[in-house]
Amino acid sequence: MTQNADTLIIGGREFTSRLMVGTGKYASFEQTAKALEISGAQIITVAVRRVNLDRSKESLLDYIDLKKYTLLPNTAGCYTADDAVRTCRLAREAGMSDFVKLEVLGDEKTLFPDNEELLKAAKILIAEGFTVLPYCSDDVIVCKKLEDIGCAAVMPLGAPIGSGLGIRNPYNIRIILENVSVPVIVDAGVGSASDAAIAMELGCAGVLMNTAIAGAQDPIAMAEAMKLAVIAGRLSYKAGRIPRKLYANASSPLDGMIG
């Protein structure tokens, strides 16, 4: 099976799915669990927050089979390296895993990364043995620096978080792909299945999304669409597309036309 051999390796772990899915913004935990299952994702992101002291609310993890997924705790909402590092340490203690999606935000309106704080936090975390997957700008210089300090992947945005604008920066993503060796995963920006396919056709190792699925009118159907789009985009990339030409090139033979 060609598809099965085409695995994604991050931080020494092997994955067959190249779609990573967030667990926020769903209507219910049942819907979250169903969407995750249909998506085929093996890596799912979670956030780290205070527990409810009244215990009246159920927990997400009550609905998720932890044997099936690699949890990727995020540092969403952190605006400084210190806060992000603190959150990662708590995540490791809670989840007993070294995987973290590191995000250090610079601005509430754009949710664009603060790359300076991101690099600072990544250095500390890598020294402490974390497997760091950083959400970063679509900037090859930043991506190279993140790779150089030991990040297990780089995760440039395709468009602002939750915007659904699609892959607005295919040339920047291509430049990143040509210049870093770690997996490049587009994180943020995807709105529809075609966006996911475009990211994969560029040669990205994977796509991470949340709102595009959770915010769809039918999240379960969109989870399936995304699964298929990521597979299709990956196969299309590997198959090698035809060159673009300005003029037509007939598909049917010109010989043997009736007289």
Binding site: G22, T23, G24, K25, Y26, T32, T45, V46, A47, V48, R49, R50, V51, S59, L60, L61, L71, P73, N74, A76, L90, A91, A94, G95, I161, G162, M209, N210, T211
Partner: peptide, 10 residues
């Protein structure tokens, strides 16, 4: 004291 756990997030 802070007690934290995992919640849904992207």
């Amino acid at each position: 004291i802070e007690i934290v756990h995992f919640v849904g997030g992207g």
